[in-house]
Write a protein that binds this DNA or RNA. Structure first.
Lengths: 367, 367
DNA sequence: TTTTAGCACTCGGGCGATTTGAGTGCTAAA
DNA sequence: TTTAGCACTCAAATCGCCCGAGTGCTAAAA
């Protein structure tokens, strides 16, 4: 089962070739490569063994070989060389981070564009999961009678707001008292732990009519919970139509149909990466990205694709997922390099944006 | 040039047929239709004339006819019968408006989904252009030192906000004074007329250090201007891959590539509809939608498509565009019917949301 | 024992010839 | 003015053919 050096070399060559041409790779073509000093016949023998062991297949007798999922797996885990970020795409990426970005959502939207531009595949970025973040403030701003802007402030300076309608009998000073009470009662608690009961308890003492109070507290509760909702940015889906694997409309359509269920794809990404997050052993540190190939993906309709995903993080509690979706035959090495580069930019931008909890990290090298 | 009744009948039949089958329509097929009492030969003669006059073409000698842009034009302007909303899609649409929607953006996002679901084509909805709306309030909420939430409130209860970073030397009371001054100086002015000079003048009197003041006023200005930025929701682009006109990947790709430039498409829609808006003669009232067919569209890459667009409005100053993009061979009648239905739902929802300027309309029938 | 040259074999894809049939335009009769 | 009839056209489907890339196997060479 263990591959000897030559087999590895051949497997790597096959994958590299197939990635760049999308054509099955034959023994002769490999033999002609300047860095191979063995004859095509030998390569044929080796390939036959690689096929036996499940790393390659050939679509029909008279065709070359293409990698299987297992073949790709060995390739991404052991064989590929991840290039240093090259100028061609670092420039592109930097463009997207050039202007001052004031909000996390802007950072992620741009990151998504940068990722898809620099890789040529489809990118996905998710806003951070904030459930573990503590509530710091809650403000209720009266816009006009009956209309209130609920502003929820979490640790590390994350702000979310939401316009709600309430009874127009409530006046500004009452609102202020409610907001104060809720804030006093709940600040410091991670939002995932905040329940409606807790909110109600916090606001209980405020002396305004029960029904009005309850309405506001409920809206406050919803606003707090909603601060954790997952935002999704996707870019470059159209780019996939340029790859031969999607030349048949049926394939293209089923891919596009699946992507249009953004929520589902985002959910999958979030789930895959929560493994990455919890798993903080050395292995992960060395290779802080995750690759899912073909059948490994549990979403029907993306079985002919691969994911490369990673986490960005401020170093504090803010962390979220980004990923690239490409054909199974994607240029993994380049994507890994590119996603790492984009990730470090996101981290840097977010550190600039987070003022309190993160300040202590600013001095550190961004790696 | 004027078409006699029989020619109209034939033209309508050709378009109807072609819309539903995507195949060129031959004389024989038409003659067999139960509602035609003329022979195929006669139809052939008529068709030849319709072709001469530019309403039809045939792709090659031995094929049936398909409509030209001009043919479609006559069809949509005079021939098609717009059906009453039928149950099949009214139900779908209603679903999307079922839950309480608190913000304009939610309404439009759902509207977009409803439109694409009910028509089977790609939909586009734009947030209202608010440039003509007056500024009512501006609030600056200190989140933490150096971080301020700028809240801009326009007429009819529209709220936009934006997180900005400022010097952390500014304290809450100073902020309050600045916001007050700006609000006093500018409220009642349409935001398109507000310049940085005007903002600076309004805030001039506040006694805090020049450079700090300028920074805040600049951010206030940007926030006000940004309240007019165009939000775009698009849905169902993937649906287009199901239509024969996109069976060739090249076509599909160029379409998708064009759509991915959302800004451009949205800009076009906005522009097209600003005509509709200003043009308030009887013609428009009777037919409050606009159709652009094939070559009439000035966006390269959508020349094989058609647009059906209309405006939603609260009756007050809030108005925006929605539209459907489909293949040139789209089911115009159904789309017009559907877009009208969705529009009335948007109007209704927005009226619910706007509390001041719109209240007076609530009693009116929604048509 | 491993590598290589040689060779027969397989099979997808491309090319051209042929056929098919839907649809036309025209003419002459109703 | 309408219609039946007919010759004609041409895209698309079908068939047969060949080509060549690539294989697996065998036997010789290293």
């Amino acid at each position: 089962m263990a591959l000897d050096e030559r087999k590895k070399l051949i497997l790597k060559a096959v994958v590299d070739d197939y990635i760049s041409t999308a054509e099955p790779v034959g023994s002769k073509a490999l033999a002609l490569r300047s860095d191979f000093n063995i004859s095509s016949a030998t390569i044929r023998n080796e390939m036959a063994e690689l096929e036996n062991d499940g790393y390659l297949i050939h679509p029909h007798t008279s065709a070359g070989r293409i990698p299987t999922d297992k073949g790709y797996r060995v390739y991404v885990d052991n064989l590929m060389q991840i290039p240093e970020p090259d100028e061609q795409y670092t420039l592109k990426v930097k463009e997207f981070f050039a202007e001052g970005l004031d909000e996390i959502t802007d950072v992620l939207e741009n990151a998504s564009k940068a990722l898809s531009e620099s890789t040529g595949y489809t990118s996905l970025t998710l806003t951070p999961r904030l459930r573990k973040n503590q509530l710091k403030q809650i403000k209720m701003l009266m816009i006009e009678p009956g209309k209130v802007l609920m502003v929820v402030v979490l640790e590390e300076g994350v702000v979310k707001d939401r316009l709600v309608r309430v009874s127009d009998l409530i006046d500004e000073s009452q609102l202020l008292r409610i907001a104060d009470a809720v804030e006093r009662g709940l600040s410091g608690i991670p939002i995932e732990e905040i329940t409606f009961i807790a909110v109600a308890a916090a606001g209980k003492k405020v002396e305004i009519p029960e029904s009005l109070l309850k309405q506001i507290l409920y809206e406050a509760y919803v606003s707090i919970k909603q601060a954790d909702s997952l935002g999704v940015y996707m870019d470059g889906a159209n780019k996939m139509l340029g790859y031969p694997e999607f030349y048949e409309v049926d394939k293209a359509k089923s891919f596009m149909d699946t992507l249009s269920e953004r929520g589902m794809v985002a959910g999958y990404l979030d789930e895959v990466n929560s493994d990455l997050e919890s798993d903080d052993n050395a292995e992960v540190t060395r290779k802080p990205y995750m690759i899912r190939i073909g059948q490994e993906i549990s979403i029907t309709g993306l079985k002919d694709c691969s994911f490369v995903t990673t986490l960005y993080s401020t170093g504090g509690k803010i962390a979220g997922s980004i990923g690239v979706i490409g054909p199974r035959r994607m240029d993994y090495a380049k994507v890994v390099s590119s996603i790492g580069f984009v990730r470090s930019h996101i981290n840097e931008e977010l550190r600039k944006l987070c003022s309190d909890g993160c300040d202590k990290y600013i001095g550190e090298s961004l790696k």
